[in-house]
């Protein structure tokens, strides 16, 4: 996930990755779940057979602040590892969300249309974004485990 427009009103229009903000804001103590796999761009994937559930991490939602709008792909769309599949808007910023894995979108979290703040309140459960039928389950092995991701966030 990268902040597409971090605080545009303040002239900070250049792309600023969340990792940069994390370092400067010094936020710590975000939750990570051991059963999930994480991308350095702060999305998670939860394998369930040949499907993976995808969302953004607690660390990412904390950096973004109040989420006010979530834009998701349609069911049937193809997502590609490392490429953007959606946008999360907070009060101040629009951020691209990158897919941690490749495949076909089989379900989207319709509840986020009316209640985007679920991404803040429950990033790993109610705030999930899409379910993807994996086209290459080997990609899961490229993702970080929870301890490596935690270290990445504190870096």
């Amino acid at each position: 996930m990268a902040l597409r427009r971090f605080a545009v009103q303040f002239g900070l229009r250049a792309q600023a990755p969340v990792a940069d903000l994390a370092a400067s804001w010094g936020r710590a103590f975000a939750t990570v779940l051991p059963e999930l796999k994480y991308a350095k761009s702060h999305e998670w994937a939860k394998p369930q057979g040949d499907v993976a559930v995808v969302g953004i991490s607690d660390h990412a939602q904390g950096e973004l602040g109040d989420v006010v709008y979530v834009e998701l792909p349609e069911v049937g769309a193809t997502v590609t590892k490392g490429e953007t599949f959606g946008v999360v808007e907070s009060v101040k910023a629009a951020s691209d969300v990158y897919s941690p894995i490749s495949g076909e979108v089989v379900e989207i979290n319709q509840a986020l249309v009316d209640e985007p703040a679920k991404v803040n309140s429950s990033p790993y459960e109610d705030g999930w974004m899409i379910k993807v039928k994996l086209s290459n389950s080997g990609e899961l092995g490229d993702l970080l485990d929870s301890s490596a991701y935690e270290a990445h966030c504190q870096h």
Partner: peptide, 22 residues
Amino acid sequence: KMVPFAGWSMPIQYKDSIMDST
């Protein structure tokens, strides 16, 4: 949370969210 603004290091927010602070 200090950010660069017009050549200054300024707080963009504190512990409250922007929503709550507003």
